[in-house]
Design a protein around this nucleic acid. Structure first.
Length: 527
RNA sequence: GGCCCGUUCGUCUAACGGUUCAGGACGACAGGUUCUCAACCUGUAAGUGGGGGUUCGAUUCCCCCACGGGUCACCA
């Protein structure tokens, strides 16, 4: 039998990181066993669906490299793969259940149902519907409808016995049928609910392994009841722990972003990405730009391999507790039996650490490829050779592709660089600390200009040697002196090595910028 | 509230019932390196929720408790 797994997102928002983790497990299991992975769209709840919210989900999967054999966009032999197009199948299933006496028409109003549930809770009894408004015959239905009630269809759960099933993560599970509620399977408007649709779809699409989040464990008995009533075979189950929010075991929710931002480490990762997003203009509301959503990582230039590697370890580990996995290795080594039983909190800082490691290992040419679109979107020139030089010099400082924008001052025109005399003076003072006197900034700059003008070849080592030589004759320290040079050439105090910075910029641009700095000093002196 | 699931450093986790001061990773902290910022190197602190059993021996098996979570009301 071919293994077939599925992931069924609702197009109600962007691709949730917890959802991706579950999808990844499904994908991995299917690939490992040479089976198929299906991407079905659970859009039964028309009210909450936004068609425009499906595309980012598909894009997210494509970006991660999680391909699907059947489903949205690609179709397949067991379609349609959109629940909204499968109503006839569901209605047929509801009819079968009704005909077999395993479901019934019910005429309780939402208020009446609510009242019963609240009463049950008050006296500490299980919340089981009394079936007071159950219609057992056509006459009953007519009577209720004459009262102006509209009916829904509820599943008629057994009131005795136990439901047993095996779960690849939870092992043997046993639940008393008596505790299971008669849930609505067809709403009064004729649409069906998740549990019914899910059972029908999994059967129609020949799903063999239902791998889903733990929150569905409690849904399993009633799904088993329905599928057996329908005469379907049972799939195998694996309920994986959900992904919890940072620092707690609550289920991760994209709506609680404001709360997560109170966490310092979470905020650091967010702010880093936000700065990039602001530069390229993707940033909209926090609702859409959110570390809980995969799109966040895609937007600022994380590597899919790093995200996937982090995610696979959220609830799964090998016996040797290794941490680095390529996608192929994951496929090879994945096993449901080694899925952890407890929820794992999302730790974006650790994800960031994976990203840093993966990025460091990436060849310069590939980094250039990834960084270029960020420059372009920020309106900066992105000449290939030059970008490569910057990327090379930045080395491990570039953690995500968008970090190239940290070096925007290398791409801006010389006129756009603002020289800050006060900052330069600060470093100059530091350079001459201990020396008899600190020279005027203008004089120091002139001497540094000579270093830049004469270094041959114009490269890190010669610039360093010349600056050090100057420092020696001046009785100053070369380090802070190079900072003066950096400030003059870039307008910044931080970046990669000052000498590398000059070398990347090239002699002409360095001189032009230093000259501009000198002129600004003249200007200040005259005004 | 009923039912169900879970509980190893702050976080992710490893540990055939016995090679263990309970191991690794991220983070934190300290030091080294250093022209700034990173990176890198070295080191330190940090954990089996509590109580009972079973056993020669429990992180591991059983029970109770506590805590956390999920689910049940026309969301998926």
């Amino acid at each position: 039998m071919t293994v077939r797994t599925r992931f069924a997102p609702s197009p109600t928002g962007y691709l949730h990181i917890g959802g991706v983790r579950t999808a990844l497990f499904n994908w991995l299991f299917a690939r490992k066993h040479g089976g198929q992975f299906i991407l079905r769209i659970d859009d039964t709840d028309q009210g909450r669906n936004q068609p425009e919210a499906l595309q980012p989900i598909l894009d997210g999967f494509k970006w991660l490299g999680l391909d699907w054999d059947e489903g949205a966009e690609v179709g397949g032999p067991y379609g349609p793969y959109y629940q909204s197009q499968r109503l006839d199948r569901y209605q047929a299933a509801v009819k079968t259940l009704l005909d077999k006496g395993l479901a019934y028409w019910d005429y309780a109003t939402p208020e009446e149902t609510k009242a019963e549930m609240q009463a049950a809770e008050k006296v500490k009894l299980p919340k089981i519907y009394s079936r007071r408004w159950m219609a057992e015959s056509a006459a009953d239905r007519a009577r209720f409808e004459a009262e102006g009630r509209t009916g829904s269809v509820k599943i008629k759960m057994p009131r005795e016995g136990v439901c047993k099933f095996y779960d690849h993560v939870r092992k043997d599970v046993e639940v008393a049928w008596a505790g299971e509620q008669d849930i609505v399977i067809q709403r009064s408007d004729g649409t069906v609910t998740y549990n019914l649709a899910n059972v029908v779809d999994d059967y129609d699409m020949k799903i063999t392994h239902v791998i889903r989040a733990e929150e569905h464990l409690s849904n399993t008995p009633r799904q088993i009841f329905m599928l057996e009533g329908l005469g379907y075979p049972r799939p195998e189950y694996a309920h994986v722990p959900f992904v919890a929010e940072p620092g707690s075991k609550n289920k991760l929710s994209k709506r609680k972003i404001a709360k997560y931002l109170e966490n310092n480490e979470f905020k650091k990762v967010y702010d880093h990405a936000k700065a990039i997003a602001d530069r390229i203009g993707v940033c909209t509301a926090p609702e859409a730009f959110n570390p809980v959503l995969v799109d966040f990582y895609k937007q600022v230039g994380y590597l899919p391999a790093a995200v996937l590697n982090y995610l696979v370890l959220l609830g799964w580990a090998t016996a040797d507790n290794r941490e680095e996995f390529t996608l192929a290795q994951m496929v090879n080594e994945f096993s449901l039996d080694r899925v952890v039983q407890n929820p794992a909190s999302l730790d974006v800082k650790k994800l960031f650490a994976f990203q840093a490691r993966y990025m460091q290992a990436l060849p310069v040419a590939e980094k250039v490829e990834l960084a270029t679109p960020f420059l372009t979107r920020a309106g900066l020139p992105a000449e290939r050779e030059f970008v490569a030089r910057v990327v090379e010099a930045a080395g491990p400082r570039m953690t995500v592709a968008g970090d190239i924008l940290d070096y925007d001052y290398l791409f801006l025109s010389d006129e756009q660089i603002a020289f800050d005399a006060a900052v330069a003076t600060k470093h100059l003072t530091a350079a001459y600390k201990g020396a008899p006197a600190v020279p005027a900034l203008k004089d120091a700059l002139a001497k540094l200009r000579a270093v830049v003008a004469s270094a041959e070849p114009f490269a890190h080592d010669t610039l360093k040697a010349a600056t050090e030589a100057l420092a020696t004759t001046e009785g100053a320290k070369a380090g802070p002196l190079s900072q003066v040079l950096r400030v003059a050439a870039t307008g910044r105090e931080v970046g990669f090595s000052a000498y590398d910075t000059l070398a990347v910029l090239g002699r002409d641009r360095c001189l032009a910028r230093i000259d501009r700095a000198l002129r600004s000093l003249d200007h200040d002196a005259h005004s």
